[in-house]
Design a protein around this nucleic acid. Structure first.
Lengths: 209, 209, 209, 209
DNA sequence: TATGAATGAGGGTTCATTCAT
DNA sequence: CATGAATGAACCCTCATTCAT
């Protein structure tokens, strides 16, 4: 269905050719993340995103021809960050114990937390196109599965895939827990950390009975 | 159009009027769960809920004077079901192994799945009043913590509380996983089941370090 | 106001039924005056009028098939009261000075004040049919003009008609003034009284220069 | 559809945009006065005001974010006109007889008649915010009292205040009378004029007892 | 190209009125 | 007849999107 060449991606609008445009787009995306996070996809308004980014509404629409397009772009950006995080993590895996790998997953989530809240908002609230959401999931799962394989060499690919899904759900829980009242947050995070470690360790050949 | 049993049934005189109301409310709530689940709180429209339940918009507003009121009622209904489920589970705990308790948690979630998806949508997307959401969380956590204490007598109350939060997040994941493509669903569910079992067992004195 | 004995009288059978209807209608009209006065024609709701009069909404509609019909009936009732007041006043005029007649007009207005506020609300806010409003005006003007002729025998009919319109507007002002803050109300009412007296006296042959 | 003078007129460059806005607002306010006058505050609909002024409903709401806001603006506009009229009148008072002052009041009212009818509608029918109504009353009373003091130097301030309220009510009557059938209107107005004159004269030291 | 005024479909909600019971 | 649940047109208002400047 999609047209051939990559430059006319329906999700993204005109490529920012000039420096000014790039800055503008960056400002818009920042504002977009903010507003979507605060209000959720539906309650967020293009007008507010424009205002917060100091952009005229017309200009915003030049770069992102649709609210959905903006959401998609934001999701894509987040996906990229996750991808980068996963790639980086993957390279560090060789010298790490499984426990450290588990912690690294959790830390990565916490690092991306602010963005992640918004991503959840968009994913769960049907913001952005279903396609984009699917693509995002795929990238995420693939990356995590890769790391798992790296960390647990004996892990069959199929098992890695299954584990990645479960693991990602647990990492989602990490974000949710990080939003809890601060009085119990520390204890909850520690518990989650422990659980994630346990999960990974349990999958390693020598420990699984 | 449906004036069947009322006059023929000698047992009840004025019942039909109220019975119809009950049916109407039930239809509305069912449709509400559907639409809220599909669209999320904001994107769901009262008009569609009315149409899907075969109710005139005015009638819908007679029963639920506000969109928020409807969401609250739905949340409350779900809370009730969860409460019942937890109460029942609690009574069965005494004779169960920890593994079976874990499975019971998962099974309960799967039983409530359709409703649960919607509950998640409402909880995460500021549907309904904040109060109602808070209350729901409290009930859920309390109930789960109770069961944990019952299942693991040596468990300190504080630890039970922490665990309940984590456990609930995992059960949330169960629902998410149950919504996956059927090709992998079975494997994923098995994995989640295993993880939940492991989590509970790890908290029992003899197996925890 | 209530006609007591009829319901206790065992002699007639058809009467009670009608009696009940009369009471119902009276209750509705009382509630109608209240609600229309408090909320104005548009903001008043048939449902509230029904509720306040302890009537089922369906019954209310049996007696007054339309909101407008109810308003008309209320207006008519008020017109009747005014008519009665004017008739009574007319009979007392012979032995009164012009100043006393003027005061009598003002007093009558103050007596009907509660109802009058509502009548103004209906008249000015287009409540009721235009016809009914017109009829009401005619009755009022005719009655006032009659009294003027009685009080000032030499007054030409045409002049009496003109004066009646002006006088009625002044009496309207009396009601408006009676709704002012109590701190100045007394002084304002005294001033208005004085003005009305002056107006009437000025029309009498010997005093008009 | 009407893009006539803007490009041909060499005097202004960016003016048209703002000019158009001004015109739009003026059109809306005119339509607002019309509709509020015809229907009263509650029965008037924003949709009709928009239609009558040739404005899209959305545009109307850009200028007046609320029905109440529009009513307030209209009231304010009228208050401004009254204020100007009163200021002007005050400056002319020194060289005028009391009778001429009275006539001037009446003439001013007749000049503002069309707007005045609507103002009455809004004031009496809880249109606009209570604050705005109160403010309007204050301005009006203060201005009238000022003029009275100017016209009747010996008048005590307290008496002027009382008189202003009464006088304003009479001027309200002037408007009401101006809306009568034309067949009697002239005579009625003459009578009202006479009454207002008499009222003012009666307050002057030499003629008041 | 950038701008923001203009557009109008659509959303939540109310209430006069009807009609099955 | 009385009742009150049911109906749906109409209201106020919002906001994604367009287009003249």
């Amino acid at each position: 269905m999609t047209m051939s060449t990559s430059s006319t991606d329906p999700a993204r609008a005109t490529e920012p050719k000039r420096e000014r445009g790039r800055l503008r787009v960056a400002a818009i995306m920042t504002a977009g993340v903010e507003v979507f996070t605060e209000k959720g996809y539906d309650a967020a308004t293009m007008t507010e995103i424009a205002a917060r980014s100091g952009t005229a509404i017309g200009s915003l629409y030049r770069f992102f021809p649709t609210k959905e397009a903006l959401a998609d772009a934001l999701l894509l950006q987040y996906a990229q960050q996750v991808k980068n995080g996963l790639t980086e993590l993957k390279q560090q895996v060789p010298g790490m114990t499984l426990e450290r790998v588990a912690d690294a997953f959790v830390d990565m989530m916490l690092l991306l937390r602010s963005q992640r809240s918004f991503a959840i908002a968009l994913m769960d609230a049907r913001g952005g196109s279903a396609d984009e959401r699917k693509r995002f999931r795929k990238v995420m799962r693939g990356g995590v599965a890769d790391i798992l394989c790296e960390a647990i060499p004996a892990l069959p690919a199929a098992k890695a895939k299954v584990m990645s899904v479960v693991l990602i759900h647990m990492l989602k829980a990490v974000v949710g827990i990080a939003d809890e009242e601060s009085s119990v947050r520390a204890a909850l995070l520690a518990e989650m950390r422990q659980l994630v470690r346990m999960y990974l360790v349990s999958a390693a050949p020598q420990s699984g009975e």
